[in-house]
Computed example of a mutant assay.
Amino acid sequence: MKTSTTSLRLAAAAALISSLAACGGYSGVDLGGTVSGLTTNGLVLANGGSTVSVPANATSYKFPNQIGNQSAYSVTIQSQPARLTCGLVNASGTSSGVPVDYVNVTCTANTYTLGGSVNGLTGSGLVLANGTDTVSVAAGSTSFVFPTAVADGTSYGVAVLTQPAGQTCSVTNGTAVMGAGNVTNVVVNCL
């Protein structure tokens, strides 16, 4: 009789352990999410002392260490990738026995203004272009800035779209690749 009681207790304990594990009460759960817009390396995410490096062009990530069931998590960006700024959605919460796969990362290119100086502009009607982006420069102006910022690492080319009345203007330093800062060295000379 003692053997069958012990067997029943062992079977009940095994069933309880199995059901707890299925609910996530006994084992850890994965922590991660999706990634969009990550075109360069350098993104490092952290959750407490656990970190994960996310490579360029990744579409998802997962921390190497699982978190416990009913454990609080708070994912942060430890290091931003080159030329991008990334943000998190659903970065903190408490696990509930199922994988936490919705701490999502969205990255966008850093952008900077494109502009410069204007010399000798006395006539009206000067219009500068950078691709389809244009800026009208008033007579007497000494500087200009395009309304649309340019993404880091993107080529730009400033040209005169419309000459001012009675003058001819030319552009120097008008073509380059946008670096990690505002461009202020494009020069427009008008005669």
Score class of each variant (00 low, 15 high):
S4C: 06
S4V: 09
S4F: 14
S7A: 15
L8E: 15
R9W: 12
R9M: 10
R9N: 11
R9K: 04
L10E: 01
A11M: 14
A12Q: 07
A12L: 13
A12D: 13
A13G: 08
A13T: 10
A14W: 05
A14Q: 09
A15N: 06
A15D: 13
L16W: 00
I17A: 15
S18D: 10
S19G: 05
L20Y: 00
L20C: 01
A21N: 05
A22H: 07
A22E: 11
A22T: 04
C23N: 13
G24W: 11
G24F: 04
G24M: 12
G25Q: 00
G25T: 01
G25I: 02
Y26H: 12
G28I: 01
V29E: 03
D30P: 03
L31R: 06
L31T: 10
L31E: 04
G32E: 08
G32T: 07
G33E: 05
G33W: 04
T34L: 06
T34Q: 15
V35H: 09
V35E: 14
S36R: 12
G37Y: 09
L38Q: 03
T39R: 13
T39G: 09
T39E: 02
T39D: 05
T39P: 03
T40W: 15
N41I: 11
N41H: 12
G42E: 07
G42P: 10
G42Q: 03
L43C: 05
V44F: 00
V44Y: 02
V44I: 09
L45D: 00
L45K: 01
A46L: 07
A46M: 01
N47Q: 02
N47T: 01
N47P: 03
N47M: 07
G48I: 01
G49N: 13
S50M: 03
S50P: 03
S50Q: 08
V52T: 11
S53M: 05
V54E: 03
V54I: 10
A56W: 01
